[in-house]
Amino acid sequence: MSNPQQLRYSKEHEWVSPVEDGVATIGITEFAANALGDVVYAELPAVGDTVAAGETCGELESTKSVSDLYSPVSGEVTETNQNVVDDPSLVNSAPFEGGWLFKVRLEGEPADLLSADEYAAHTAG
Protein backbone atom coordinates (compact mmCIF):
# COMPACT_ATOMS: atom_id res chain seq x y z
CA MET A 1 0.00 0.00 0.00
CA SER A 2 1.56 3.33 -0.95
CA ASN A 3 0.40 6.77 0.06
CA PRO A 4 0.86 9.40 -2.70
CA GLN A 5 3.68 11.79 -1.75
CA GLN A 6 1.88 14.93 -2.95
CA LEU A 7 -1.02 14.43 -0.50
CA ARG A 8 -1.18 15.31 3.18
CA TYR A 9 -2.91 13.13 5.75
CA SER A 10 -4.87 13.30 8.98
CA LYS A 11 -4.51 10.83 11.83
CA GLU A 12 -8.18 9.96 11.23
CA HIS A 13 -7.12 8.57 7.83
CA GLU A 14 -8.32 11.30 5.50
CA TRP A 15 -6.14 12.74 2.76
CA VAL A 16 -5.96 16.36 1.56
CA SER A 17 -4.87 17.29 -1.95
CA PRO A 18 -2.58 20.22 -2.79
CA VAL A 19 -4.59 23.46 -2.70
CA GLU A 20 -5.72 24.86 -6.05
CA ASP A 21 -7.36 28.29 -6.15
CA GLY A 22 -8.02 27.97 -2.43
CA VAL A 23 -9.79 24.61 -2.77
CA ALA A 24 -8.57 21.21 -1.54
CA THR A 25 -9.98 17.77 -2.35
CA ILE A 26 -10.64 15.34 0.53
CA GLY A 27 -10.84 11.56 0.58
CA ILE A 28 -10.05 8.61 2.83
CA THR A 29 -6.82 6.65 2.56
CA GLU A 30 -6.36 3.17 1.17
CA PHE A 31 -5.49 2.03 4.70
CA ALA A 32 -8.86 3.28 5.93
CA ALA A 33 -10.72 1.81 2.96
CA ASN A 34 -9.13 -1.59 3.60
CA ALA A 35 -9.98 -1.41 7.28
CA LEU A 36 -13.62 -0.57 6.53
CA GLY A 37 -14.15 -3.31 3.97
CA ASP A 38 -16.63 -2.84 1.14
CA VAL A 39 -18.18 0.62 1.47
CA VAL A 40 -21.90 0.41 0.66
CA TYR A 41 -23.20 3.84 1.62
CA ALA A 42 -21.62 7.27 1.79
CA GLU A 43 -23.27 10.23 3.47
CA LEU A 44 -21.29 13.31 2.46
CA PRO A 45 -21.66 16.91 3.63
CA ALA A 46 -23.81 19.12 1.40
CA VAL A 47 -22.42 21.77 -0.90
CA GLY A 48 -22.41 25.02 1.04
CA ASP A 49 -21.94 23.31 4.43
CA THR A 50 -19.24 24.64 6.70
CA VAL A 51 -16.90 21.94 7.96
CA ALA A 52 -14.37 22.19 10.78
CA ALA A 53 -11.09 20.32 11.05
CA GLY A 54 -11.42 17.29 13.30
CA GLU A 55 -15.21 17.34 13.36
CA THR A 56 -17.58 14.82 11.83
CA CYS A 57 -19.20 15.78 8.56
CA GLY A 58 -20.71 12.55 7.28
CA GLU A 59 -20.49 8.79 7.51
CA LEU A 60 -19.28 5.80 5.59
CA GLU A 61 -21.11 2.53 5.93
CA SER A 62 -19.51 -0.82 5.14
CA THR A 63 -20.69 -4.41 5.38
CA LYS A 64 -19.68 -4.68 9.02
CA SER A 65 -19.91 -1.20 10.44
CA VAL A 66 -20.63 2.48 10.12
CA SER A 67 -17.84 5.01 10.61
CA ASP A 68 -17.92 8.74 11.07
CA LEU A 69 -16.28 10.82 8.39
CA TYR A 70 -14.07 13.57 9.80
CA SER A 71 -13.11 16.67 7.90
CA PRO A 72 -9.33 17.13 8.04
CA VAL A 73 -9.66 20.87 7.17
CA SER A 74 -11.92 23.84 7.90
CA GLY A 75 -13.89 25.74 5.29
CA GLU A 76 -16.90 25.61 3.00
CA VAL A 77 -17.84 22.56 0.94
CA THR A 78 -17.83 23.49 -2.77
CA GLU A 79 -18.42 20.11 -4.37
CA THR A 80 -19.19 16.48 -3.46
CA ASN A 81 -18.44 13.37 -5.46
CA GLN A 82 -21.80 12.17 -6.78
CA ASN A 83 -20.05 9.15 -8.35
CA VAL A 84 -19.23 7.87 -4.85
CA VAL A 85 -22.80 8.43 -3.66
CA ASP A 86 -24.01 6.38 -6.64
CA ASP A 87 -21.27 3.76 -6.39
CA PRO A 88 -19.62 3.73 -2.95
CA SER A 89 -17.28 0.89 -4.00
CA LEU A 90 -15.15 3.59 -5.68
CA VAL A 91 -13.86 4.36 -2.18
CA ASN A 92 -12.37 0.85 -2.10
CA SER A 93 -11.24 0.57 -5.69
CA ALA A 94 -9.71 4.05 -6.10
CA PRO A 95 -9.47 5.76 -2.70
CA PHE A 96 -6.89 8.33 -3.84
CA GLU A 97 -8.49 9.08 -7.22
CA GLY A 98 -12.06 8.42 -8.39
CA GLY A 99 -13.09 7.71 -4.80
CA TRP A 100 -12.48 11.28 -3.55
CA LEU A 101 -15.32 12.54 -1.31
CA PHE A 102 -15.65 16.33 -1.23
CA LYS A 103 -13.90 19.64 -1.93
CA VAL A 104 -13.45 22.46 0.56
CA ARG A 105 -12.67 26.16 0.09
CA LEU A 106 -10.15 26.50 2.90
CA GLU A 107 -10.29 28.97 5.76
CA GLY A 108 -6.62 29.54 6.36
CA GLU A 109 -3.81 27.04 6.14
CA PRO A 110 -4.70 23.51 7.35
CA ALA A 111 -2.80 22.52 10.49
CA ASP A 112 -1.67 19.25 12.01
CA LEU A 113 -1.52 17.26 8.78
CA LEU A 114 1.03 14.52 8.17
CA SER A 115 3.32 13.91 5.23
CA ALA A 116 3.02 10.63 3.35
CA ASP A 117 5.99 9.22 5.28
CA GLU A 118 4.66 10.41 8.62
CA TYR A 119 1.27 8.89 7.83
CA ALA A 120 2.91 5.60 6.82
CA ALA A 121 4.66 5.56 10.21
CA HIS A 122 1.36 6.38 11.92
CA THR A 123 -0.41 3.42 10.32
CA ALA A 124 2.53 1.03 10.79
CA GLY A 125 2.04 1.14 14.58
Binding site: G37, D38, T63, K64, S89, N92
Partner: peptide, 8 residues
Amino acid sequence: PLRYGSER
Protein backbone atom coordinates in the same frame (compact mmCIF):
# COMPACT_ATOMS: atom_id res chain seq x y z
CA PRO B 1 -10.12 -14.58 8.69
CA LEU B 2 -12.76 -11.87 8.26
CA ARG B 3 -12.08 -11.49 4.53
CA TYR B 4 -9.25 -11.94 2.08
CA GLY B 5 -10.26 -9.22 -0.38
CA SER B 6 -13.70 -7.82 -0.99
CA GLU B 7 -16.33 -9.57 1.17
CA ARG B 8 -18.91 -8.76 -1.50
